[in-house]
Computed example of a mutant assay.
Amino acid sequence: MKIILIGGSGFVGTQLIDRLLETSGVEVLNIDKNNSSKYPELTRIGNVMDWQTLAHHAKGGDVVVLLAAEHRDDVSPISLYYDINVEGMRNTLRAMEENGIKRLIFTSSVAVYGLDKDSPNEDTAIDPFNDYGKSKWQAEQVLHVWHRNHPDWNINIIRPTVIFGEGNRGNVYNLLKQIASGRFMMIGKGNNKKSMSYIGNIVAFICFLIAEKKQEGYEVYNYVDKPDFTTNDLVHHTGHILGKKIPTIRIPYGLGMLGGYGFDFLAFITRKKLNISSVRVKKFCATTQFSSSKAMSSGFVPPYTMEEGLRRMLEEEF
């Protein structure tokens, strides 16, 4: 089986290649606009905005895993979300059709549900609050229409929540780094629950879907590792694992948002991307809790618990 990763040079893609290479009878090729620092010999340079290059490199593939996305909070111009996430989907499908590849696994996002929802499942109404979530939903709609016209395809959509783990340099890493350093400021009460996904489990779930070898069908899965931690829980577990007493400064939510708007203004006038913004404060304080009962009833068993995943990341990074 030849598996084509599109956008596999980053955090998730690198870990996925690690796991796929442990499987006998599997050939892996990564297509990305950036070379892979770990697997340059498996990487071909290509952009999701260029379907012909994708088609050229994807020859002989059996399954495509689409990881490429524009996902940062501060992307400018905003049109990049739609260029990469939506048009990139169309170009990927065109390249697949050119090569007769009919199996696709697409990593979407729980951002399609919006914030502060009551543990949404795959049937919950869609209500994205930002352009990232909107563009991911539009990409899913492209896929839905495509499958209606190509019922013999096998399409699996995974909507993971925020992913953490060794090698991650995203929001969870920055949060844990602040906590571990003892310079952490809690905005709000810290009782808001945060659904998270450990990288080892996400890549295992992708491999599980690949191994099913279904020839047709259309499925959507939330992916979340349970239990859901509150921000207070993260502080507690981090301190316990690292053997540290973590001092916590608490700031009221309103004051935190006011500071976020101040950083928005500063970023606007300096034309610089800053680590603090009103969007990040809002996301930090929001309850982002999701159901993944469908994925967990599919026969998949996560190889790691949440506590094990957190311990592995903290001991590796800090």
Score class of each variant (00 low, 15 high):
residue 109 S to Y: 06
residue 110 V to K: 08
residue 110 V to R: 00
residue 110 V to D: 12
residue 110 V to G: 10
residue 112 V to L: 05
residue 112 V to Y: 08
residue 113 Y to S: 00
residue 113 Y to R: 00
residue 114 G to R: 03
residue 114 G to T: 02
residue 115 L to F: 15
residue 115 L to N: 12
residue 115 L to W: 09
residue 116 D to V: 13
residue 116 D to F: 08
residue 116 D to P: 12
residue 116 D to W: 13
residue 116 D to C: 15
residue 116 D to E: 13
residue 117 K to V: 06
residue 117 K to W: 09
residue 117 K to Y: 08
residue 118 D to S: 13
residue 118 D to I: 04
residue 119 S to V: 09
residue 119 S to N: 10
residue 119 S to Y: 12
residue 119 S to F: 11
residue 120 P to D: 02
residue 120 P to Y: 14
residue 121 N to V: 04
residue 121 N to S: 15
residue 122 E to K: 12
residue 123 D to S: 15
residue 124 T to E: 05
residue 124 T to W: 13
residue 124 T to F: 15
residue 124 T to I: 00
residue 124 T to P: 01
residue 125 A to K: 06
residue 125 A to V: 05
residue 126 I to L: 14
residue 126 I to D: 06
residue 127 D to L: 13
residue 127 D to Y: 15
residue 127 D to Q: 15
residue 128 P to T: 01
residue 128 P to G: 13
residue 128 P to V: 08
residue 129 F to W: 06
residue 130 N to Y: 09
residue 131 D to H: 15
residue 131 D to Y: 14
residue 131 D to P: 09
residue 131 D to E: 14
residue 132 Y to E: 11
residue 133 G to R: 06
residue 133 G to N: 09
residue 133 G to D: 05
residue 134 K to W: 06
residue 135 S to K: 04
residue 135 S to I: 04
residue 135 S to D: 14
residue 136 K to N: 04
residue 136 K to Y: 03
residue 137 W to R: 14
residue 137 W to S: 00
residue 138 Q to R: 10
residue 139 A to C: 11
residue 140 E to F: 13
residue 140 E to V: 02
residue 140 E to A: 10
residue 140 E to K: 14
residue 141 Q to W: 02
residue 141 Q to S: 07
residue 141 Q to R: 12
residue 141 Q to T: 11
residue 141 Q to G: 00
residue 141 Q to Y: 10
residue 142 V to M: 08
residue 142 V to Q: 07
residue 142 V to Y: 08
residue 143 L to S: 03
residue 143 L to W: 08
residue 144 H to M: 09
residue 144 H to E: 12
residue 144 H to G: 00
residue 144 H to D: 02
residue 144 H to Q: 10
residue 145 V to P: 00
residue 145 V to M: 05
residue 145 V to L: 05
residue 145 V to W: 01
residue 146 W to G: 05
residue 147 H to P: 03
residue 148 R to I: 01
residue 148 R to Y: 04
residue 149 N to W: 02
residue 149 N to F: 03
residue 149 N to M: 11
residue 149 N to V: 09
residue 150 H to R: 12
residue 150 H to Y: 15
residue 152 D to Y: 14
residue 152 D to T: 04
residue 152 D to S: 11
residue 152 D to P: 07
residue 153 W to T: 08
residue 153 W to F: 06
residue 153 W to G: 10
residue 154 N to E: 06
residue 155 I to E: 01
residue 155 I to F: 04
residue 155 I to Q: 03
residue 155 I to W: 08
residue 156 N to K: 14
residue 156 N to I: 04
residue 156 N to Q: 13
residue 156 N to L: 00
residue 157 I to F: 01
residue 157 I to Y: 08
residue 157 I to C: 04
residue 158 I to Y: 09
residue 158 I to H: 07
residue 159 R to T: 01
residue 160 P to L: 03
residue 160 P to M: 03
residue 161 T to F: 10
residue 161 T to N: 02
residue 162 V to Q: 09
residue 162 V to F: 15
residue 162 V to K: 12
residue 163 I to G: 10
residue 163 I to T: 13
residue 163 I to C: 10
residue 163 I to S: 08
residue 164 F to R: 09
residue 165 G to R: 11
residue 165 G to W: 12
